[in-house]
Design a protein around this nucleic acid. Structure first.
Lengths: 199, 199
DNA sequence: GTCTATATTTTGATAGAC
DNA sequence: GTCTATCAAAATATAGAC
């Protein structure tokens, strides 16, 4: 019995606590392996009924999480694009952000990169059609237009570049690569950038 | 009612029919979104009881599928390694195989690349610890030893190379890239190989 | 706004007739 | 070896007391 709030009565729970707990559980064991009972245990209330005060159902929790993560990412990318002009600089900062997130908020990155969201949120847009990724694709378009990136289908440039970046992060998240993401960042950037740079 | 075998009585079903139907359903809608009822409908028997004649439970079906796919892949890779000496040639043929499979047996590739198998088969080894992928990693080790591939951690070589290949295939499987996989093969190979080749 | 208690539904799974 | 019939378990979800 190493539960923190054992037998205390009427613990008060906020929507954000629920989201945090759900994120951890979804990242660790997947959406379908996580029941509302698991979530209620994690936030320390006695029944699942408390959850329904804040969220309509389990899907809504996942949807809110997905939305929050994409919003936050979108804002970061806006900021990066504002502060940098060259595609190489923008991509470098995005890579920096993703590697940092992998070390500091792995659950967020698991949700973003490992989990197939459309499997439990069929209403949601596929990842590539969401604002942050639309913006990233735009960076490749501009990079090609400006001659920084070699002439090829922008979507393929995106694919090669993020193939390397996201597979590296995936290997870190799964533990197949056993050091922190930051250990691999410099090399991965070089490898990824070299696939698209105009020489 | 466009069901083929409507109202015929006592349809006989083989284990392989069940596996094929399950593979399609798992690939299309995911393991957890696929019930035994879905599978029984797909194979055209009247109740789920018939399935239990051939498989102990739902997990066993997925496990058999996973095993079959890995076995088949392993055999193909053995064959490729036997017929080719250089790492570049071996990898080229493996890439060829994977792109062909993506066009000709997309469900198999979905199972292999898009589905997080450990989520519903917790007993199974992670993909990278299975024979076919152990052999692929070996190819990178040998390539480095022989000076064909530049000196770097073999697992990173694997990561960069297959980052590009598998992300490209993933984009095809999800429909984000809208032509057949074979349209992208030559370019993807060049991009992937260039990240590891010794120049 | 959390609690007790319960309803509802779905799904995985089995027993025994044919 | 498929069928009918049924079970058991688990999970989502709700009603109403406090």
């Amino acid at each position: 019995m190493d539960k923190e709030k054992e037998n205390t009565q009427k613990k008060v729970v906020t929507p954000d606590e629920i989201l945090q707990a759900a994120l951890k559980l979804f990242a660790k064991q997947g959406y379908f392996n996580t029941s509302l009972t698991d979530i209620k245990d994690a936030v320390g209330i006695k029944t699942t009924a408390g959850i329904y005060q804040h969220f309509k159902n389990k899907q809504t929790i996942a949807s809110a999480l997905y939305g929050n993560i994409l919003d936050s990412l979108s804002i970061s990318i806006d900021d990066i694009r504002r502060r940098n002009r060259k595609a190489s600089e923008q991509l470098r900062e995005i890579v920096d952000l993703l590697f940092k997130l992998t070390d500091e908020a792995p659950e967020v990155m698991q949700f973003l990169m490992l989990i197939k969201v459309t499997e439990f949120l069929p209403e949601e847009k596929p990842l590539l059609d969401t604002p942050p990724f639309i913006k990233i694709k735009k960076i490749f378009q501009n990079g090609i237009r400006d001659g920084e990136i070699r002439a090829l289908d922008p979507l393929l440039a995106y694919t090669y570049f993020f193939g390397i970046i996201s597979y590296t992060l995936k290997m870190v998240l799964t533990g197949d690569l056993d050091k922190g993401a930051d250990s691999y960042q410099a090399q991965a950037w070089l490898a990824a950038w070299s696939t698209v740079v105009k020489k």
